[in-house]
Nucleic acid binder design. Structure first.
Length: 612
RNA sequence: CGGGGCGUGGCUCAGCUUGGCUAGAGCGCUGCGUUCGGGACGCAGAGGUCGAAGGUUCAAAUCCUUUCGCCCCGACCA
């Protein structure tokens, strides 16, 4: 097999293990690693984290949304996992490992098989007997089964179990490299309690774990209120890594500390303009005016907040579908997640033109509350409250009504909050303005309640001798997504900038000229010294690579601490250059080692600020 | 699933509209030499079923059909 002769692995350092701190050891000379960098971004990389990882061999695509995690990335992923493990174990959680393959029967029990298959996100297959299996996208069914076969008494509760495992979801559109893959690494945890109050306590404990985990990873993040979505349950929060390229928009208020995913966010919206003098409702021809912008041109004196739009939705429930018309102030936008929740629907989607014509008798753009087709349910966003003498669609092509009053011309429809918050709205309570920022969801925690424990009969006997379903919570961290988010948040023109706690290596020794005796000796000495202290150190010992290329590569892979061994090596002088910040200093070799020690001591000794 | 785009050495791409020399460039890679603190230079090389199948033609990377894969927008998304 070995046509090129066996390569001897780098011999392990002599003597006993030098550190009790768990550390990821591997060959640390660049000449011993498979290390290739590309000058150009790959054509299919859309975001920086993906492009940079693909250019450096961190990540290689095998199929859409399916990747090889290269050795460098794997080191980072293991460090993230390590932090996750330590914080979960410290909080009293137990690690286990569940199967990736799961039988259909379990998913029938919870009632999720059809839904997940119809949504198309479940990878499923048949074994040779024809039995159906899926590759687990999540593990509520398995964990609930695992626990129920052992759970008998309240004395066994509370209990939190977790695993770190590859998850499979046939995402309709995988994208952005590690950010949204079809196969990805996730930590999922599940708590079991005897009471709702216990569930909330477990949830709060896990919230603290998450805060510690992301803080220790060196990330800037925000915990936000979230919509629990299809998984169900009463309360949930997402942990968002702050990044402009994030897929999620979040509403935050610096003053009050309020933070919520815009899917869920609510606030106090600017009041509508004062009521105009009463005039009778009348029809007005509005040829071609399909949008509020068109109408503003036609009626320049009418404030947009006195135009009420009526938006038609096709709504799907489990057993039926229907059409719902939703009214909303002209200067506001609707929030389909809130709407679906209010209607208890599986899904809402904008009605197509055909459905609009059938429901209103008019071309799209002229829908209104008066004279809607039979069977169309009418509701209104709370932004319509207090709007008087408004304009609305006439349900007749090229026609709108003007000077319409709720109560006089038609009853005000059932009104609730279906609105999307906007920058400048006040936080709930009316203090402090909301800003809209973006984030990458790296963690999500849920209070599940008894949804799965009831469906799957995960019960125990309480103190009074009664049989009760367990109160559950579930908690996820996208391990591989954390790595991508770290780079989305921390990079510059030249490349990645890893936060020290999760960097593949903590220190990079860049040797300018391999073969120069003084440099060879000093670089080796530094490498030995750092290695001996248990520091993850990488040594760029490549010969025949120009200094420029070495610096470019160093910037690209973003090892946070850098020591350059160059022309002053014979004087034991090296250049100290952190990846971020750019300030460099000429120091002697001992000082460089001391600075590494200090930087590492700072992250391990830094008190964890707990952000609410 | 709807709309759009792309598949040509390891990477980024040209060539295709209007079929025709031996299929090109830059980067990367190998060897030799000169360089050596921000992707150096010279010389000599290696490396390609032009995504796949079928068809049209004297002749197909190029035209036609089918198919597979990938990317973007949307819908979707514990």
């Amino acid at each position: 097999m070995c046509t090129r002769g066996a390569r001897v692995l780098q011999e392990p350092p002599a003597g006993p293990p030098r550190s009790r701190v768990p550390r990821i050891s591997a060959p640390m000379r660049l000449t011993r690693l498979l290390f290739v960098t590309l000058r150009d971004d790959p054509a299919d990389a859309e975001v920086r984290s993906h492009a940079l990882m693909a250019r450096t061999g961190f990540l290689q695509k095998v199929a859409a949304g399916i990747y090889v995690y290269g050795p460098m990335l794997w080191r980072t992923l293991r460090k993230i996992e390590q932090i996750v493990r330590e914080e979960h174990d410290r909080a009293g959680c137990q690690e286990l490992l569940m199967p990736a393959l799961q039988p259909r029967e379990l998913w029938e029990e919870s009632g999720r098989w059809d839904r997940y298959v119809n949504d198309g996100i479940l990878f499923h297959l048949q074994d040779r007997k024809g039995a159906e299996l899926c590759l687990g996208p999540t593990h509520e069914e398995v964990i609930t089964t695992f626990v129920k076969r052992q759970l008998q008494s309240y004395k066994q509760l509370p209990l939190t179990l977790y695993q770190i495992q590859t998850k499979f979801r046939d995402e309709i559109r995988p994208r952005f490299g590690l950010m949204r893959g079809r196969e990805f690494i996730m930590k999922d945890a599940y708590s079991f309690d005897a009471t709702p109050a216990g569930m909330k306590e477990s949830y709060q404990a896990m919230r603290a774990v998450y805060t510690r985990v992301f803080t220790r990873c060196g990330l800037r993040f925000t915990a936000v209120e979230a919509d629990p979505g299809a998984i169900g349950g009463s309360g949930s929060e997402e942990f968002m890594v702050d990044a402009d390229t994030g897929e999620d928009a979040i509403a935050v208020c610096r003053e009050t500390g309020y933070a919520a995913n815009v899917e869920k966010a609510t606030g106090v919206i600017p009041p509508p303009p004062a009521a105009p003098p009463q005039r009778p409702m009348h029809k007005e021809p509005t040829p071609g005016a399909r949008s509020c912008e068109d109408l503003q041109r036609m009626f320049p004196d009418l404030p947009i907040a006195r135009m009420l739009k009526t938006v038609l939705y096709r709504v799907l429930w489990r057993d039926r579908e229907g059409v719902v018309a939703v009214m909303c102030r002209g200067d506001r936008a609707l929030n389909e997640v809130k709407l679906a929740n209010f209607l208890d629907a599986l899904k809402v989607e904008l009605a197509d033109e055909k459905l609009v014509r059938a429901s209103t008798g008019a071309e799209p753009g002229f829908a209104g509350p008066i004279g809607l087709g039979a069977g169309v349910r009418l509701v209104a966003d709370r932004s319509v409250e207090g709007v008087h003498g408004f304009l609305c669609g006439g349900n007749e092509t090229d026609t709108h009504y003007l000077d319409v009053w709720f109560g006089r011309d038609l009853p005000q429809p059932e009104t609730a909050d279906f609105g999307q918050v906007q920058a400048g709205d006040l936080a709930p309570g009316g203090q402090g303005a909301l800003e809209i920022t973006r984030g990458i969801e790296v963690g999500h925690i849920f209070q599940l309640g008894t949804k799965y424990s009831e469906a799957m009969e995960c019960r125990f006997v309480d103190e009074q001798g009664r049989t009760q379903p367990a109160w559950m919570g579930c908690y996820g961290i996208g391990i591989s997504r954390v790595a991508a988010a770290a780079i989305e948040q921390n990079h510059d023109e030249a490349g990645m900038i890893w936060p020290l706690p999760i960097a593949p290596y903590s220190v990079l020794i860049v040797q300018m000229k391999a073969g120069d005796a003084a440099q060879d000796d000093l670089a080796a000495e530094l490498h030995e010294a750092l290695e001996g202290e248990g520091v993850d150190v990488l040594w760029d010992d490549r010969p025949k690579v120009s200094p420029g290329a070495k610096f470019k590569d160093a910037d690209l892979i973003g090892i946070p601490l850098r020591i350059v061994v160059g022309r002053d090596a014979s004087q034991r002088q090296v250049e100290w250059k952190p990846r971020r910040g750019g300030s460099t200093a000429i120091v002697d070799a001992e000082e460089a080692v001391a600075r590494v020690r200090a930087a590492l001591a700072e992250i391990s000794g830094r008190p964890l600020e707990v952000r609410a």
